[in-house]
Structures are given as C-alpha cells and as structure tokens.
Amino acid sequence: MASSASDSNQAILRIGTRGSPLALAQADETRTRLIAAHPHLASPGAIEIRIIKTTGDKEQNRLLNEIGGKGLFTKEIEEALLAGDVDIAVHSMKDMPTFLPEGLVISCLLPREDPRDVLITTAGTSIATLPQGAVVGSASLRRAAQIKALRPDLSIVPLRGNVETRIAKVQRGDATATLLALAGLKRLHKANIATAILSTDEILPAVAQGAIGIESRAGDDRVNELLAPLNDPQTEMRVTTERACLAVLEGSCRTPIAALAELQGDRLRLRALVALPDGSKVYRQDATAAASDARKLGEQIGRKLKELAGPDFLP
C-alpha cells in the first residue's frame, strides 16, 4: 500500500510512482529489494511510496503520439524528483523517453522480467488463427505494425488503459484480441490469462520491455549508494544496447521501433526493426558483438536501420 504524504518527514526514502496496479507492484518490488539490501529500511515509515498522477494517466481517450509521446508517463514524476519532493522514481523502462532531463539519471535497473508480448483473445489461439478481419485493440504502433505485417486483413483499433482495463475491453467485445507485455502480467500475478505467449521472432518487444528502471538525481550520493546493490549488470547491458539503438533512430511514439538484446555467453545479440505504421514496410537488423561493446552494437544497428529506411521514413 502507498503511504500517506504525512509520513514524508519521517521517511528515509521517498519513492515516486504512477498509481496503476502495475506501477504500484513495481514500486513495491523496489521497496522489497531495498529492504533486503538495507535492513534498516524495514522500520515502519522508512520508505514512503508516493503516487503521482501523470498526463499520460489523465489522457486515457487519446493516443500517446497525438498528445506528446511516452514522456507523458514520466514528466510529473521527474518534476517531483527534481524539486526534491521524492528521492527516486520507479519506471517501466519501455515508457522512458530516449533522453532524460538534465540532472537525472537511471541509477539502477532491476533484474529484467520476460520481455515477450502475449496475445489475449476471445477467438483463436494465436495471431495466425484469429478470424479473418478480426479487430485487434492496441495503442502501440510497434505492435500494430508487426501485427499488420503478419496479418494485413486484421483491423487495428486504439485500446488504451491499464492492464485490467484492456483485458476487460476484450472480454466485453470491444475488440477480439489485444497484446500485452508478459512482464506486467507476471508482476500482477495474471500470466495465466494469456491465450498465447508470442515468440520474439513473431512480435519483437519494445525497447527495454520488462525492465524496471530507478531514476534519481545525478549528484544525490546518499540515495545512489542505497540503490547501487540493486543494479543488475546483465539487465543494464541489454537495456543500454537497446536504448543506444533507439537514440540513434531518435525514436518516439510516432515511429514503430522494436529491439531486443540477449546475452549469449560473452556475446550480445541485438535484433531491431523499424516499420511503417501499417506494416507495409519493415526493416530488420540482427547482429552480435562482444558484451563489452553493448552501446557500440546498439548504435551500429541504429545507424544501419536508419540507412536502410532512408531519410523520409523516420519523422
């Protein structure tokens, strides 16, 4: 449960988060890991979870690319962080803009959950078996483009809201199917409702999907020392690679972009794509490099995709 603001003066650490069930589950996981690393934080009131409503949460009836992109899920929380109202912010890394506000850093990444997407449908058992012309609800250009590339006959309609809302919309017939992140379902203990887990060869995930990032002030040594033991080096390497690719592509919610980095021993494999929103053109790249060259690999793949797509492809 989130603590009340009245506890703020006593809290050793104040966590800023959105108020959705998934966001609160992620904040609670962060608190649990902090307590495990620093037992003194287990005392009552030592950690406060503060809910901050973002523009993205308020604007539920419009697509993100129409109202400013994925930064709308982080802006107000980052403002609170810069103002000193909270000490850290817990984010789904796939929601994070390519570049952070000056003075803020992603100081820690928790171990990544399964990055794959799942299909939830009332008809069929896979994308291939959905009825001809079926309506798929999704507000994600990445998912929509890849679905249309696989099944041009399917109709994509906007479907926003938190996990529970989107599931309910499918169950009542607003759409035949939708796609959700498996990581979110696992964190909400709802993975059993998935009709099918989609292969990454079928639907490539969003950049950093499944990763929880903890944002803090760059010069806040007290807080950053508390966070240091929580950082997962493998997740950091993978997310660094994917976000480096995204940065080269200057990616936003207006362009379907997907990327997945995977460690294979001391090698790192990166698969990435850019697509037109209707899925009529999809450019893909797949390469490996030494794990120590994570950022370099991401930038290399980003440049190659940009070259393949051409100057008029990316807005």
Rank of each mutant, 00 (worst) to 15 (best):
M1S: 14
A2T: 09
A2I: 06
S6G: 08
L13C: 12
I15M: 12
S20N: 07
A25Y: 04
A36S: 14
A37L: 14
A37Q: 14
L41K: 11
G69H: 04
L72W: 01
F73L: 08
F73Q: 00
A80L: 01
A80E: 13
D87L: 04
M93G: 02
M93W: 00
D95I: 01
M96N: 11
P97M: 04
L119R: 05
T121E: 11
A123Q: 13
A123R: 10
T125F: 00
T125A: 14
T129V: 01
A134Y: 01
A134T: 09
V136E: 08
A144K: 06
A145Q: 02
I147N: 05
A149Q: 12
A149K: 03
R172V: 14
L179E: 01
L179G: 09
A183E: 01
G184P: 11
L185I: 04
L185K: 04
R187G: 02
L188P: 05
T195P: 11
V207E: 07
A208Q: 06
A211R: 02
E215P: 00
R217V: 13
N231R: 03
N231G: 05
D232N: 14
E242V: 03
A244T: 11
P256N: 08
A259E: 09
A259D: 03
K281P: 04
Q285V: 12
A294Q: 05
Q300R: 13
L314Y: 05
